[in-house]
Simulated scan of single mutants.
Amino acid sequence: MLPGRDWDNYLQLAVCEIRDYGRSSVQICRRLRAMLEGLLEALPVHQHPAVRTQLDLLRDSVEREFTDPARRAIAQQADHQGIGGQHPS
């Protein structure tokens, strides 16, 4: 049997470079947050810790990157539509 990756490693592989290279883009941060929050809704509870870790890393990255409080607040909001608008309630 070939060694494989576990869930945590697959998730990290999927989002690490997007977060690192897209950290200066408000919209990339918003879409990544939306994806991760969607995973929390869709995945079994035992997979949530890895997703929460990625959300924490994203939050930390946004806090470091966006020094303007207004832009930081926008970057911290999930954007499910991918067009910069608010998610419909």
Score class of each variant (00 low, 15 high):
60 D>Q: 15
7 W>P: 04
48 H>K: 09
54 Q>W: 03
20 D>I: 02
61 S>T: 15
26 V>Q: 07
27 Q>T: 10
77 Q>M: 14
40 L>C: 08
37 E>G: 05
68 D>P: 00
45 V>E: 07
24 S>K: 15
10 Y>R: 14
9 N>E: 12
49 P>L: 00
55 L>N: 10
82 G>F: 02
77 Q>H: 14
27 Q>A: 09
40 L>S: 07
33 R>M: 03
71 R>D: 04
71 R>S: 05
4 G>H: 11
11 L>G: 07
7 W>Q: 08
30 R>V: 02
68 D>R: 02
47 Q>I: 00
43 L>K: 08
12 Q>M: 09
39 L>E: 09
23 R>T: 03
5 R>F: 10
7 W>G: 01
23 R>D: 02
71 R>Y: 02
41 E>I: 04
76 Q>P: 04
49 P>A: 01
12 Q>T: 10
46 H>P: 04
49 P>G: 02
11 L>S: 09
19 R>Y: 00
42 A>H: 10
18 I>W: 10
60 D>H: 14
18 I>Y: 06
85 G>A: 11
51 V>H: 03
35 M>Q: 03
63 E>H: 02
27 Q>E: 11
62 V>R: 00
19 R>L: 03
34 A>I: 03
58 L>E: 12
62 V>Y: 01
72 R>Y: 06
11 L>Q: 07
79 D>K: 02
6 D>E: 15
59 R>D: 14
73 A>G: 11
28 I>V: 13
62 V>N: 01
75 A>G: 05
67 T>V: 08
75 A>L: 03
24 S>F: 04
77 Q>N: 14
5 R>N: 13
79 D>N: 14
83 I>N: 15
13 L>S: 13
40 L>D: 05
14 A>W: 04
24 S>W: 10
79 D>E: 05
86 Q>I: 11
85 G>H: 08
26 V>K: 06
74 I>H: 09
60 D>F: 06
59 R>S: 07
77 Q>G: 10
35 M>E: 01
42 A>R: 15
75 A>V: 01
44 P>Y: 05
86 Q>E: 15
38 G>W: 06
6 D>G: 15
34 A>L: 03
89 S>I: 05
87 H>L: 06
8 D>M: 00
16 C>L: 12
44 P>H: 08
9 N>L: 07
85 G>I: 09
14 A>Y: 05
15 V>K: 01
37 E>Q: 12
69 P>R: 08
52 R>Q: 15
15 V>T: 10
31 R>I: 11
4 G>Q: 15
22 G>L: 06
16 C>K: 13
31 R>K: 11
75 A>C: 05
3 P>D: 11
26 V>S: 02
32 L>A: 05
